[in-house]
């Protein structure tokens, strides 16, 4: 088990190395940081000094090595636009994005899985058809449109929920949370629905398809032939067998939710990393973009590791092979 985790972490190294190479390459090929930082008026001496300060006169590999050394320590340099350390900016914004993402993922799972089980079991009922129709809307409507529609209905017409921002937050150490205040929770509702709706319908459809598949298998028929209760058959034998693909997709979707909260954060002016990133893109603020890229890559690596560990918990058939590969 431990050996498996270690071997997985070693596999992650080349991935992170490649991503850092790509993110570093952005400095060299996307815009000229010196020109951006100096602005309109500068002397040649100022320019040379800045190039030296930034280490741009060094050979490529020396620069890359410096970059890696700093990145490993969590240092990604100064934001061109805000002139503050990128790591500080990201840490400041991370709680907002993570709280939003996990709420959205939680909603997607807590609603999507039961709906998927229900529609899988009672294919013909009108409620199932209703859920499926709704899910079609969730899958096909773009996120920004859902966000705008929700704002229109709940913030503009009904006026019950805020249309932007995080509300009041409480600081716990460096982490700021909106979970502890009423306005924070209210502010969380619309964005998390917007962000989670697509995932919810995706999970629902996935669970439904897997349930239909699993319910046809011999072991479900045999479980019924043994006279087990419907509850045991549906939620024990059947649902558990749908979990491996559901875990895979949910894991990847969680990564996607965090990485691509950008649209939702823009619509709701949510002060998270997505908003930071989109502002960085429009200003060619490369250190932020590079750091964001690295962070998202790391996130996916971690999620994949967790997904693999969950497989291990769910499916005994994989335990043997995992132990084998680690030996």
């Amino acid at each position: 088990m431990f050996a498996f985790i270690v071997s997985r972490l070693f596999q992650a190294l080349p991935v992170m190395f490649t991503v850092s190479l790509i993110s570093f390459a952005m400095f060299a090929y996307v815009g000229d940081p010196v020109a951006i930082m100096l602005g309109q008026d500068y002397t040649e001496a100022q320019r040379q000094a800045l190039i030296r300060d930034l280490g741009l006169d060094q050979p490529f590999f020396v620069q890359f090595f410096e970059y890696l050394k700093n990145a490993v320590q969590g240092e990604f340099g100064l934001s061109y636009r805000l002139a503050r350390p990128v790591s500080d900016l990201i840490l400041e914004r991370a709680p907002a994005t993570l709280e939003l993402s996990f709420t959205a993922a939680f909603l997607a799972l807590a609603i999507g899985v039961p709906m998927g089980v229900y529609t899988g079991l009672y294919r013909e009922s009108w409620l199932s058809r209703f859920f499926l129709t709704i899910s079609l809307i969730g899958v096909s409507l773009p996120t920004f449109l859902i966000g705008i529609l929700l704002i229109l209905v709940f913030a503009v017409m009904l006026g019950v929920l805020p249309s932007f921002g995080r509300g009041d937050t409480v600081a716990i150490g460096w982490w700021t949370t909106g979970f502890l205040t009423a306005s924070g929770l209210k502010a969380l509702i619309l964005p998390s629905i917007t962000l989670g709706l697509f995932q919810m319908t995706l999970i629902m459809r996935l669970v439904r398809a897997e349930m239909l598949e699993v319910l046809r298998t011999d072991y479900i028929k045999f479980a019924r032939a043994r006279g087990l209760s419907n509850r045991a058959v549906h939620f024990g034998h059947a649902l558990k067998n749908t979990l491996v693909p559901v875990i895979t997709i949910t894991g990847l979707q969680l990564g996607a939710i965090i990485a691509f909260a950008i649209v939702t954060e823009t619509v709701f002016q949510w002060p998270g990393m997505g908003l930071l990133f989109i502002q960085a893109v429009s200003n060619a603020d490369i250190p932020i973009m590079a750091a964001y890229l690295m962070m998202i890559a790391l996130l996916f690596v971690i999620i994949n590791l967790v997904v693999d560990l969950l497989y291990y918990l769910v499916d005994p058939r994989l335990r043997g092979s995992l132990a084998g590969s680690a030996r």
């Binding site: 011999d218 028929k221 045999f222 032939a225 087990l228 034998h237 067998n241 499916d315 005994p316 058939r317």
Partner: peptide
């Protein structure tokens, strides 16, 4: 009927490779 199945009428299926739930001991 559920109480008849298993308790009064047992069943054995054709393919033992697929009749047992792979996730339960």
């Amino acid at each position: 009927m559920r109480h008849v199945r298993g308790k009064q009428i047992g069943a054995i299926f054709q393919d033992p490779l697929t009749t047992l739930n792979p996730l339960y001991s």
